[in-house]
């Protein structure tokens, strides 16, 4: 038995192999190369790392995502690789945001940051309203309460500043702003502008839904010019306390620069499949 030829193996074939979707003969050939060929073993590792990173960064879709979930994640060792990739991504984001924000590695834990931010919103709400609101632990309640501090954006025909919610103005200094973004429209158009005052800790975006078919949601914040993922949310739930069905997303304001962003919203269906909802684009102006 001599080692098989590896000249004709493209990246897609390797991905299929890693996802258990390669034809049997091809899988056997790659099995052999993965152990016996130094060059291929190294290449396989690199492609696998990139594949895992792509999953963690929400870049996989369709059948690839499905295969990743059903096949790749079936092994504890491979799940450990995914957990490492999540930490590694957080460490890179943390290192990046430390350069820009004094909040440092705190921003590496979006869910914690969100929960803490949501608690701050509650306190501001208590200060402003002074009655009728009782603190309850948990992000779910906090998210619902955020709605009271938000106002809806009309679809803007031209760039227009979006002012923070009126409820926030009662508190000083401002630490929280909230905006509601309308469902994405297919045709182009100008981006809504969100104005983030200096000193703001968290910007909460309510992403309005046209339909609420998903069990839960996840959002990814992208810098449109740099084409990079800036931040990822944890698991989110839709709420409609004011009659508008929307997903609240709390973004650490320190991550936002005067630039164009999109919040890409994905729904997680009851079957476990991911369903891309849309990109809610906006431009940030710092005040």
């Amino acid at each position: 038995m001599s080692p098989p030829d590896r000249q004709d193996i493209d990246e897609q074939a390797v991905i299929q192999y890693l996802l258990g979707a390669a034809p049997e003969a091809e899988a056997e050939r790659l099995d052999e190369l993965s152990v016996s060929d130094d060059g291929f073993a190294g290449r396989l590792r690199g492609i696998e790392n990139d594949l895992v990173d792509a999953y963690v960064q929400g870049e996989l879709s369709g059948e690839t995502l499905e295969r990743f979930r059903t096949h790749y994640l079936s092994s504890p060792r491979r799940r450990e690789k995914v957990r490492f990739a999540e930490s590694f991504l957080a460490a890179r984001q943390s290192a990046g945001s430390r350069r820009e924000s004094p909040m440092g590695s705190w921003l590496a834990f979006p869910r914690l940051a969100f929960a803490a931010g949501a608690c701050l919103v509650l306190l501001i709400g208590l200060y402003a309203v002074r009655e009728g609101v009782r603190f309850r632990e948990g992000a779910e309640r906090a998210r619902s309460d955020l709605a009271g501090l938000e106002r809806r954006l009309p679809p803007p025909p031209a760039p227009a500043p979006v002012n923070p919610a009126p409820g926030r103005e009662a508190a000083h200094p401002p630490s929280m702003v909230a905006f509601l973004l309308a469902p994405p429209v297919r045709s182009g158009g100008t981006l809504p502008v969100v104005t983030v005052p200096a000193g703001t800790d968290q910007a909460t975006f309510r992403l309005e839904l046209e339909a609420d078919d998903a069990m839960a949601y996840q959002a990814v914040l992208k810098d449109l010019a740099a084409s990079t993922i800036v931040w990822r949310s944890g698991r989110l739930n839709a709420a409609s306390p004011d009659g508008i069905r929307a997903v609240p997303v709390g973004v650490p304001a320190g991550l936002l620069k005067p630039a164009s962003y999109s919040l890409d919203l994905t729904g997680i269906l009851a079957s476990g499949a991911a369903d891309f909802i849309g990109s809610y684009s906006f431009r940030v102006a710092l005040q």
Partner: peptide, 16 residues
């Protein structure tokens, strides 16, 4: 979520 965050925080600390 709290347990996940705790584990993730420990892992990140080790990674750093």
């Amino acid at each position: 979520p709290a347990a996940e965050d705790q584990t993730q925080r420990q892992r990140l600390r080790r990674l750093e």
